[in-house]
Design a binder for these strands. Structure first.
Length: 477
RNA sequence: GGCCCCAUCGUCCAGCGGUUAGGACACCAGGUUUUCAUCCUGGUAACCAGGGUUCGAUUCCCUGUGGGGUCACCA
């Protein structure tokens, strides 16, 4: 009997959505689609303290901006809703009660201060910080009395003594941990909200999740989760823990502290969503033919979580840039102009941008490079006499500028072809050094030594501007 | 520190007992070119160490070393 594959991503609205989350979401999405299954989005907002207003909307919109989507979840609904944990509080309460009734969980009245003090003491004695089980055997009648009296409490899982917890991870095979190393995890907090550990299990079970692909940082809490499944008498899903992204310097996992990590910021700095997704696809995984430029459909066709490398990967920005350049070059001019809209400076007209585009397309690594590559087309340039006369003398340059101005003024057509014809014949007649002359012209009209091809650039700049710049150059000599 | 995970060029991946250890990015050189970029060609560059197992280990096992993750009433 085969069950329909259902995967999920469960973001928590506590701040910016991380690129690693998109990468993990992509894998969940792809695996569901690979199997003709469904991908579910669920909001895990059980932390009332860290919750940020508006974060849910931002997360949903950034996921869509990356070109991904979900089958069930916020905005869409579905048969297992609601898909927001704060709207499911009753379900968790009942679940916790069930564990209490079966003696799989217990009330604990230790205050946060008490626990902090306990951990500090353990650390001072070089012992692993751990809950000491002080309320584990506390008489239930007493506990009930204190609860009834309104005393704050949490509910903890009664982790069985001396058992080995084993689970299978798709990338790593079997993983075993002794239950003595597993804390009596808090299931229900004193504010009546469940912890992640309880909520995730109750919901994954209720929503029929078959595969959990999540970050490697969860691997050490998986034994707790397996134990909770066992306490309920439920079957755990299949786990695959995806290695974390290491920061580009290769030291430690990518974090805010080490630079850009938010999913939105990569879009804002001019990376194309499809290039980003492609990057996430091939980071830690390879197409059977080692093909690296992949569409989402190709990825879905070949992706299998068991083939993901089990080692942490460095977030290689250079490779991302290369990929982004490839995607930019593959866009038609119309598509590119469209994508470029947020990156075109206010002082560059649409007409100008459209004209310039073909000249700089293969020079851009990110969309935000547009301004740096094009500003001289619509902004003033300053040139330096030193550079202007480099490889020549002021006298020769003066003559070159004068003759060039003259030749250009007489031009009846400002086409790239006519320009090239005129300038080349001038250069040949005068026997000027091609390199010096062309480079000098390039510098005069653009203020830069690295530009698009000379004649097409001059053509796009326009007669008026070019003649102005030629005479401005003559003036400083 | 305890527990867990991981280990092939600088980076990412291929290899799945016998290979001149392959590809991509980056880097270097050459070609195309008026510069830059694109594009093409070539090159440098790796099996963490020590023990086993085996006729034979990059590949399997153990130990060490190194890296990573995690130890909350956060997810």
């Amino acid at each position: 009997m085969s069950q329909k594959v259902r995967t999920r991503m469960a973001p928590s609205p506590t701040g910016e959505y991380h690129v690693g989350h998109i990468a993990t979401l992509l894998k969940n999405y792809a695996w569901a689609k690979h199997n003709g299954g469904d991908f579910i989005l669920r909001i895990e907002d059980t932390d009332q303290v860290r919750k940020v207003d508006g974060a849910v909307e931002k997360i949903l919109s950034v996921i869509k901006d990356y070109g991904l989507d979900w089958d069930e979840g916020p905005e869409k609904g579905g048969p297992f809703g609601p898909y927001v944990q704060s709207e499911r509080l009753e379900i968790y309460k009942e679940a916790a009660q069930q564990l209490l009734d079966n003696d799989q969980a217990y009330y604990c009245f230790a205050t946060p201060e008490e626990l902090t003090e306990l951990r500090d003491r353990q650390r001072a004695e070089k012992l692993p910080p751990k809950y000491d089980g002080r309320y584990r055997e506390y008489p239930k009648e007493e506990a009930l009395k204190r609860v009834a009296a309104g005393e704050p409490y949490v509910i903890r899982l009664k982790v069985p003594k001396d058992v080995t917890v084993t689970f299978t991870d798709l990338l790593r095979g079997g993983i075993s941990v002794e239950s003595s190393n597993v804390d009596d995890q808090v299931l229900m907090k004193s504010d009546g909200f469940p912890t992640y550990h309880l909520a995730v299990i109750v919901d994954d079970h209720a929503m029929g999740i078959t595969h959990v692909l999540r970050g490697e940082e969860w691997i050490s809490s998986t034994p707790k989760h397996v134990l909770i499944y066992k306490a309920f008498g439920w079957e755990p899903p299949i786990y695959a823990h995806i290695p974390v992204f290491l920061s580009p310097d290769g030291k430690g996992k990518m974090s805010k502290r080490k630079g850009t990590v938010s999913a939105q910021s990569f879009l804002d700095s001019g990376y194309l969503p499809e290039a980003l997704l492609n990057f996430f696809m091939i980071l830690g995984w390879a197409h059977p033919d080692q093909k690296e430029i992949l569409t989402l459909d190709e990825y879905i066709k070949y992706f299998d979580p068991k083939d993901i490398s089990s080692k942490s990967v460095v977030f290689d920005v250079q490779k991302l840039q290369w990929l982004n350049g490839v995607y930019i070059r593959n866009l038609t001019d119309e598509e590119l102009l469209d994508r470029l809209q947020p990156f075109i400076p206010a002082d560059c007209s649409q007409e100008k941008a459209k004209e310039i585009l073909p000249l700089i397309k293969e020079r851009m690594a990110t969309l935000s490079d547009f301004e740096a590559h094009t500003s001289f087309f619509y902004r003033n340039v300053t040139i330096d006499k030193e550079i202007l006369t480099k490889k020549s003398t002021p006298e020769i340059v003066q003559e070159q500028l004068e003759e060039t101005s003259h030749a250009m003024s007489n031009l009846e057509s400002w086409s790239e072809e006519k320009l090239e014809e005129a300038i080349r014949s001038l250069q040949q007649n005068k026997d000027w050094k091609t390199k010096q002359y062309f480079m000098m012209l390039r510098y005069v009209v653009s203020g830069s030594a690295a530009t698009p091809p000379l004649f097409s650039m001059i053509s796009v700049l326009g007669k008026k501007l070019v003649l102005e710049r030629l005479s401005a150059a003559r003036a400083i000599l």
